[in-house]
Write a protein that binds this DNA or RNA. Structure first.
Lengths: 197, 197
DNA sequence: TGTACATCAGTGAACGCGCGTTCACTGATGTAC
DNA sequence: TGTACATCAGTGAACGCGCGTTCACTGATGTAC
């Protein structure tokens, strides 16, 4: 047989990661197969050795975030298995609603970068998106559980505040207003977090 | 001269309204000039008598919401010049974060329907989008002003909760989870509203 | 009131480009012996 | 260890379709007289 076993896996991974970055920057329609392959150091024609279609690549790019770049992101935020439960939510909020996250287009959470693309995409893509949200809500729930009865509602609202605040901040042309929204959302979500004794 | 004075205005308005509806349904890239013109009862070729480009139409469609369909929406929500200031925010929240609004794709606020399209669009489009947000925040501020010192922060956070909650609800394939988010965001935003004495 | 005319909104065919996808081919890799 | 061979990842040209945009033409409208 030609090439050793994991060669194809590695190349495939490189394509997905290139796609994730470019989709984050330019959205689904702003990215071509050609650009993705070039970004990954390959040429157009080979794409269909790895993926069935552009849509399938998109779906993989979205769901790759959680275990790939997102894991690194969580590590930087101090969110890992050793983190005390009550600290997790606050660390998450602080990092998610930060200027760094807002400006890091390449590494940004796809929930911020891609909502209306996903809305009109195939079910696989939407499931990938929902997976990201569920992970975020679960993190909030686990972190809140100890000290709050309205856990579920608060977890969902925190997620909405995080994603909503950042989507708006990213989309607004006025960077002052963007900053203001991001800061306000952070302050309010911290209040929600401390709201119950 | 041919045709009376406001004929062109009327046709133009019809095109913008058709565009607004179709963009809401299918996003910027999912809509063609041909479809817009047919929806308005016209044919492709006439488009450039009225607009410079598809992008310009998009920008007009977004900003048309505030005075057009959005005005009707506010009227239904009981938000008008006669509404007592303190009631405005609550009425806004109740209508914005409602199942009706979630399911009304055609009449939905463009901030929900179009965020990532706008993110990559021309400045005109982004300004139109920002105009919608500013109107919403201003409404919250005016309504809160009487009884809260953290007015600005709360107004911005309420906007983020509204838009974020609805974007997520609209995008998620699970309608149970969608409903849950919409409800949680409504409950939390009402709490923010009543938080100060 | 009626007829000839000028205007320009609207028509629909055509253009041209970009991009997703396909395909015949190449050449690097690992295996057989 | 060295050579012939089979495989298949990767190449790049080509295909075909969709869509934004253009353009020569048509015909409905209102005006002049």
């Amino acid at each position: 047989m030609s090439y050793n076993a994991d060669h194809k896996q590695k190349v495939r991974g490189k394509i997905v990661e290139s796609a994730r970055i470019l989709f984050n920057r330019h959205g689904f329609h702003g990215v071509t197969i050609d650009k993705v392959m070039n970004f990954a150091g390959l040429t157009r024609g080979g794409f269909y050795n790895h993926f069935e279609s552009k849509e399938m690549l998109y779906s993989e790019a979205v769901s790759s975030f959680l275990m790939g770049r997102g894991a690194q992101w969580r590590e930087n935020a101090g969110i890992n298995p050793g983190t005390p439960m009550p600290d997790m939510a606050r660390r998450m909020l602080t990092s998610y609603l930060s200027a760094e996250h807002l400006n890091d287009l390449d590494g940004q959470c796809p929930m911020i970068a891609l909502p209306s693309d996903v809305d009109r995409a195939k079910p696989e893509v939407q499931s990938a998106y929902q997976g990201l949200l569920e992970a975020m809500v679960a993190l909030f729930e686990r972190s809140l559980e100890a000290h709050n009865s309205k856990t579920r509602q608060n977890a969902l609202s925190l997620a909405a505040l995080c994603v909503g605040g950042m989507i708006l901040a990213r989309t607004l042309p006025s960077s002052e207003l963007a900053k203001e929204i991001q800061t306000a959302a952070l302050a309010t979500s911290n209040e929600i977090l401390s709201e119950s004794p």
